[in-house]
């Protein structure tokens, strides 16, 4: 791509559209992972652009841990309806039956069961040979190493030491039976690019990103929101109404809020410019150890 004669964001947009089309053209049964967050919103917007006037020739897949914010589910259903898309919602029913939850089972076990395993289940069940994810290389160190077309074994594992060379814009989508590719069209975007693009394209996002008075409790230095009555309070914990927003969205008991008064996109971007903590610090699952994201990815996490 000629990066020198088009704006930075347009350059990224064109590159992502190219990647999304390559996946649609080379795979028999692709799917787009839709996690409802801002990155998914941008990825979906790019997919709509890539195939216009056709609809994206693949369904969306949402892995529902049953602990997502209520507003996320509402937003998901509205978005799918608005664009007339196919949505597959998959849950680890065994996990739901056994009441696997982030409070009793710890964030790491819970994430493994309700996210990683549920995702692998869904991919196997529907026989998807390619899955789009909205991950970016600037998010985390092991992601910075990942290819745009990232090969997964038939057990969905990632072998970071043995990745296919990926040159120019030539992506190798060849897989054997049961093997698959995770495709990352937003690889070269940064968090700031995402926000600027949302701003310039007027993309709808979940209202949780905007500051509002919400019921929160402070636990281990993190502000957690009480999204429903399943949140067991520990002794001495007090629910407070605070002006907060979220920089990333996930399962509400594992997603830290930040105190903020930014209630517009402009406000969010200007807050970002003075921010001194990276966005994943709001996700409790990354903090176990430095290599924890790589470990999860080897096991099949996105």
């Amino acid at each position: 791509m000629d990066n020198h004669s088009q704006s930075h964001l347009k350059g990224l947009e064109n590159e992502s559209i190219h990647i999304i089309r390559e996946v649609a053209a080379e795979f028999e049964n692709p799917v787009m992972l839709y996690s409802i967050g801002k990155d998914s919103a941008v990825m979906l917007h790019l997919a709509l652009k890539a195939f216009y006037p056709s609809k994206p020739p693949f369904p969306l897949l949402h892995v529902d841990t049953t602990w997502k914010f209520k507003e996320m589910i509402l937003f998901r259903d509205q978005t799918v309806k608005k664009h007339g898309l196919d949505l597959i919602v998959h849950r680890n029913e065994e996990g739901v039956k056994n009441n696997i939850n982030p409070f009793d089972h710890g964030s790491s076990n819970y994430t493994h069961e309700m996210k990683t395993e549920a995702l692998k289940d869904a991919l196997t069940k529907y026989g998807f040979d390619a899955a789009f994810g909205g991950a970016r290389r600037d998010e985390e160190k092991s992601r910075a190493k990942e290819r745009v077309f990232s090969f997964r074994s038939s057990t969905h594992g990632w072998d970071p030491k043995n990745q296919r060379p990926e040159l120019w814009s030539l992506y190798n989508g060849r897989t054997g039976k049961g093997e698959s590719i995770r495709a990352f069209p937003l690889s070269n975007w940064t968090e700031l690019d995402i926000w600027q693009y949302i701003l310039s394209e007027g993309i709808d996002i979940v209202p949780l990103y905007f500051s509002k008075e919400r019921p929160v409790v402070e636990r281990d230095g993190t502000l957690l929101m009480l999204d429903d009555d399943r949140f067991p309070l520990r002794e001495g914990e007090k629910v407070e109404q605070k002006q907060v927003r979220f920089r990333t969205l996930g399962c509400y008991p594992l997603t830290g809020a930040v105190e903020s008064s930014a209630d517009t996109l402009e406000g969010i971007v200007s807050e970002m410019l003075v921010a001194r903590t990276s966005e994943r610090s709001g996700r409790l699952i990354d903090h176990d150890s430095s290599g924890s994201m790589e470990k999860k990815k080897r096991e099949g996490y996105f």
Binding site: E140, K141, S142, R143, A144, K145, P160, K161, S290, G291, E294, K295
Partner: peptide
Amino acid sequence: LVDGLEAER
């Protein structure tokens, strides 16, 4: 800051 894989570190 840049060597992200466990084996690299």
